[in-house]
Nucleic acid binder design. Structure first.
Lengths: 342, 342
DNA sequence: TTGTATGCGTTATCAG
DNA sequence: CTGATAACGCATACAA
């Protein structure tokens, strides 16, 4: 693999001149520039960004560490990050932790060694240590989606509490009283926040405390499947299910089908996050839609601003508004449903 | 950010000694080792892998460039790659081209500049140029999934032709004669191979040429949706649809639903590649299952062997066997279906 | 067992 | 406009 020196020799100039041609820095006569460019082409020279980064102390690379690349919500976020980053000349390294703390730790170490310029992190757990680890190296981090107690850090997230509140109100306004919340891991802030919004709506409506039916599980379709089974086993069963994310909803739908229950005729089903048509869900669900692409963009902009303007201002928390999208998956609560049931 | 020199000073030794401690190379007395390790901990020293790679001329990093990260087939392949690579101490950088030649070119350039040790590439197009570009830099490549004419390169792929042949035979044995093949882009080898296998089965069964119903489109659910619509518009319509990949199948299923056709009662539907339960497809499809995880593993092993043993043997082509999994999405061909139709 | 000199490929600085 | 020198952080070869 040829180096800048090989190119220089071939063009009969000094290495630094080649550097100037490549980076369009400093003065180079048209004539030498042409000679150098010819040499570059002939040798198929590819600059070594390792050496470059070593000098610059900059890699022009951001790390995006997230928890579940198979979830379209996150692929959409990733697209937002990718677009915002590359528009500013930054590359993105994508890492998938699968919600595993071990994998996350491994990736953070590797990425710190590779000297990425900044981190966009969806923390696998709500502990501040990983944040501290990054910050102790003087590398900026923006946390995505999840609040981390005790960490002084920028964060960009959706309005989980507000969205859950709105959606629960909608269900209540349709006459539902027994609404089961199928939530994620209790220690993840989005799960807690969504339950909180759900509870607020119930209380405001004056519903008794024993109608607060919150179940905690995993943010996966398998988790949703089991959560729905648990919720449906109650007596009397709920008339509506509120899935705390899209994968839980898909799992819940499967459980409903197996139980012979139709949506929305027998049970209403709503959820957080869109479910793209690729997932072939029928019926399409009423959801709280988070601006995933914008979340990626905003977080990246914030991170890049931290990078450029040495702006060491207070940590910011950006809460993006969410939007309820009503579709046919929820209907009025049947007043006397399946009276013989369970 | 502290360097190896800072650590050395703090421990009262030379930088090289710190290096020896970190890499467990050469002799270091227990005493100095302890002092150095203490210094490393106190300073929270993180080795700079850029400098390291610059010396070693090795990054211990592989690039995995694929076409559609949202497709579970590819995420499974990626998992196989990741596992095989990290078991040998290699990191993986994952890049998603979205089937776009432009993005692919951009990524290849960046990755070459970053001096990754090798490439695992799912080519966006069947042209040899990208392969040549990589090979001209002396960097090993293994192509995944797709044959590239005119390129001397290692390849690991599934038996598209054979799988399509088997599955088509199954349909024929169930009495189907009008079988529409909903394929991918004609210029992608997997699409062509699957059509070839399909044709071979038809001919062997002695079916006339006008029953070779091959449609070409995109490997996406949107593509599948349109392909199915085109196929169903024929008169008489097909009794079975063969989707050339899982996303095409999902799209086709949507088109079938909209047309009021049930699977398998009205039309049989089969496809290449598994569709994980997360996609909530009902009914589960009869498929040709490719060993995705193993494909990732095998390709990585091959690539690593090229890396270590300077093994410049002939390019190898590894064709992995596929397996037909029969489920309820295909049934006997109705002898006189919807006689009034269209 | 530990240290010195040197170079990996690139660019900033300063001189010509 | 162009070039010599030095330095980025680390590890190999060779001394001590």
């Amino acid at each position: 693999m040829p180096t800048i020196r090989d190119v220089a020799e071939r063009a009969g100039v000094a290495p630094i001149t080649v550097s100037r041609v490549i980076n369009n820095s400093g003065y180079v006569s048209e004539e030498t520039r042409a000679r150098v460019e010819a040499a570059i082409a002939e040798l198929q020279y590819v600059p070594n960004s390792l050496a470059r980064s070593l000098r610059f102390k900059r890699t022009d690379t951001l790390a995006l560490v997230l928890t579940d690349i198979t979830n379209p919500f996150w692929t959409t976020v990733a697209r937002g990050v990718e677009d915002a980053a590359s528009s500013q000349g930054f590359n993105v390294i994508l890492c998938n932790t699968d919600e595993s703390e071990g994998k996350q730790e491994k990736y953070l170490n590797v990425l710190l060694q590779k000297r990425v310029d900044g981190f966009l992190l969806v923390p696998a757990r709500s502990t501040p240590e990983p944040i501290w680890q990054i910050q102790s190296q003087g590398v900026p981090v923006v946390v995505l989606d999840r609040r981390i107690p005790d960490a002084q850090v920028d964060i960009v997230r959706g309005d989980s509490e507000g969205g859950a509140y709105e959606l629960t109100r909608l269900l209540i306004s349709m006459g539902h009283r027994r609404i089961a919340m199928l939530s994620g891991p209790a220690e993840v802030s989005t799960a807690a926040d969504r339950v909180a919004g759900y509870r607020r709506a119930l209380r405001e409506a004056g519903l008794p405390k024993d109608l607060e039916l919150a179940y905690y599980g995993e943010y996966t379709q398998e988790g949703g499947y089991r959560l729905a089974q648990r919720a449906l086993a109650a007596s009397p069963p709920p008339t509506a299910l509120f899935a705390a994310n899209n994968f839980i909803a898909i799992g819940a739908l499967r459980a409903l089908r197996e139980a012979g229950l139709r949506v929305p005729d027998d049970v209403s089903l709503v959820s957080f996050d869109e479910i793209p048509p690729a997932f072939a869900i029928d019926p399409f669900l009423t959801v709280v839609c988070q601006p995933a692409y914008e979340m990626g963009q905003e977080a990246t902009k914030l991170l890049l601003s931290r990078l450029s303007e040495e702006e060491s201002g207070e940590p910011r928390e950006i809460v993006l508004p969410v939007k309820v999208i009503v579709r046919k998956s929820c209907g009025p609560a049947p007043s006397k449903r399946r009276p013989e049931s369970v």
